[in-house]
Computed example of a mutant assay.
Amino acid sequence: MSLPAYFISDAHLGVNPPGAVPDREKALVRFLESITGKASHLVIVGDLFEFWYEYNDYVCRNHFDLFFAMRELVKSGCEVHLLQGNHDFAYGDFFPKTVGAQVHKELVLEIQGKRVYFRHGDGVAKSDFGYRLFRRILDFPLNRFLFRQIHPDWGMALARFVGRSSRKVGESRVIKMDEYLHWANRMLKKTGSSRCILGHHHVPGVWNVENGVVASAGDWMKKLTYIQMDAGELNLNEFRTLG
């Protein structure tokens, strides 16, 4: 019998906005420990961090316990995959080389006899046009090089300030789920998949569409929700062991 697979997204570790679950990174470490040796796959569907940038000799020490828990999960035989989000798209080789977690922009996996397509989901909605342009600017090689010249402490502080500002703007944005579901339905057909897992919009749920099933784990901020896949079925759960 196949082991279950787990999908989470949008933890935005590194910030504690109003309404966030206290010590949610510690809860995430406990969650990873609870599935170690009991999971075939863990896919983090983007925005694990509020901000991520790799320097040649610098990695944020605040997440050491998380790195260790992920490494132990990999050593137990679980495939761990990280998707780039709109907050943590600047991954380098730290996770593949040191932790053993693979990094992707999008991903297709065969799990429990089902073809599953993963994408964070930023830039999907028609209203994300301005963001798509901004992302191109941020991801331009020259701009990435210039940012690398900033001292890591200053760079992290600047990025968190920008992140807080963008979050305040985003709080008033209306989520149009029909746009995400329409796009996901097209991608199911395009990739020959029967399951599509998205993040980004922070809306937890499982939806049936014409070409398969679309699911989102919501976020690991205000509710510690995750998707568990058993025998091809997608189930939305909440991690409650916080003590």
Rank of each mutant, 00 (worst) to 15 (best):
Ile8Arg: 03
Ala11Leu: 12
Gly14Trp: 15
Val15Ala: 12
Asn16Pro: 02
Ala20Phe: 13
Arg24Val: 05
Val29Met: 10
Arg30His: 04
Arg30Val: 00
Phe31Asn: 00
Leu32Ser: 03
Ala39Ile: 02
His41Lys: 04
Gly46Asn: 06
Asn56Tyr: 12
Asn62Tyr: 09
His63Asp: 08
Phe64Glu: 11
Phe68Arg: 12
Glu72Phe: 01
Cys78Leu: 00
Glu79Pro: 01
Val80Cys: 01
Asp88Arg: 12
Phe89Glu: 08
Asp93Tyr: 14
Asp93Glu: 14
Phe94Tyr: 15
Ala101Asp: 04
Ala101Pro: 05
Ala101Trp: 06
Ala101Lys: 03
Gln102Ser: 12
Lys105Leu: 04
Lys105Gly: 02
Leu109Ile: 06
Gly113Lys: 00
Lys114Arg: 12
Arg115Tyr: 04
Tyr117Gly: 01
Arg119Ile: 01
His120Lys: 02
Asp128Asn: 04
Asp128Cys: 03
Arg132Phe: 05
Phe134Asp: 12
Arg135Glu: 12
Arg144Tyr: 09
Phe145Ile: 06
Gln149His: 08
Trp154Arg: 13
Ala157Tyr: 14
Leu158Ala: 11
Leu158Cys: 03
Phe161Glu: 08
Arg164His: 10
Lys176Leu: 03
His182Asp: 15
Thr191Glu: 14
Gly192Pro: 14
Arg195Ser: 03
Arg195Asn: 10
Ile197Lys: 02
His200Ser: 07
Gly205Ala: 08
Asn208His: 09
Val209Tyr: 09
Val213Gln: 14
Ser216Thr: 13
Met221Arg: 14
Thr225Phe: 05
Ile227Asn: 03
Ala231Met: 08
Asn235Lys: 14
Asn237Glu: 14
Arg240Phe: 06
Thr241His: 11
Leu242Val: 14
Gly243Ile: 05
